[in-house]
Amino acid sequence: MFKEFRNIINYRYLIYQLVLRDIKVRYKNSVLGFFWSLANPLIQVATITIVVKYIMRVDIPNYSAYLLAAFLPWQFVLNGLADSSEVLLHHRDLIKKVPFPREVLPISNVLSNLIHFLLALCILVVYLLVFWLFLHGSSLRPGFLWLPVLIILQTCLLMGIAFVICTINAFFDDTKFILNALLNIGFYLTPVMYPVELVYTKLPEAHRDWLFRLYMLSPFNTLMDAYKKLLMPPFEGSVAGNTVTSLPMDWGMFAVCAVICISVLFLGMDFFNKRKHLFAERL
């Protein structure tokens, strides 16, 4: 695997070129294109906020900020994985006719989605600044310093999964449909729209602790929750008649999550490596 890493580093200029091209296409070389690409998640956040707050009567103060803190990372998951199913197919000509390390393709796909995510995060930061400085008179939370760690872990996780998805899609054409279904379900299974504490209160009391740990074993759940906990202050609210209070950040589970994310990256790369020589024939 060491040889593969060195090879990828030798091709860093290709990664740069591929990412640059993706970004250019996404923003259509215009400032307006950039705003359009951000408008979509913001409209969704506004819609969900209205439905949850005013129709379903969930009372969590500053709900939209909590939602945004996990929604943007979730968009990164969604776009990063959905694009990865097609990335080999898009570069079919290149794969069939030019020898180069194939890892470059899923890597640059995740990286270009990462850049998009970072740009979107700027909006979140502005949003939160307005919130805390002007409305609450407090400063940004120190949890912000953890943001790079969260982003790196999430990128590792997505890259590992992207390696697996694009490999399977090279052999089975219907992978992307199954993936899209899973991602749709995933949005409701991970604590993006709702606080993780809600899951905690709904679990049977006798087995609550270990069941909750099991739930948090999913790196998606831990990561989405960590974004909320580290960027936002603890809250107290009520959901469907239950009082819900913030649980403290579980650093033990976070460490487990970090190990999982990095392991997924290596396992995914290994899976890809063992099958990459077949891509040129199968695509």
């Binding site: 030798n10 091709y11 200029y13 290709l14 740069y16 070129q17 091209r21 000509d93 290149l94 069939k96 006719k97 030019v98 020898p99 180069f100």
Partner: peptide, 30 residues
């Protein structure tokens, strides 16, 4: 390797940009 016409080119990039792109595919630096 020149296995085909336009192999290692990206159709939407200009000829000039493709010189960079093709060079990158070969593993060359800028």
């Amino acid at each position: 390797t020149m296995l085909d016409l336009g192999s290692g080119f990206h159709p939407d990039l200009t000829g000039m940009e493709n010189i960079y792109f093709n060079g990158a595919v070969l593993g060359l630096s800028k």
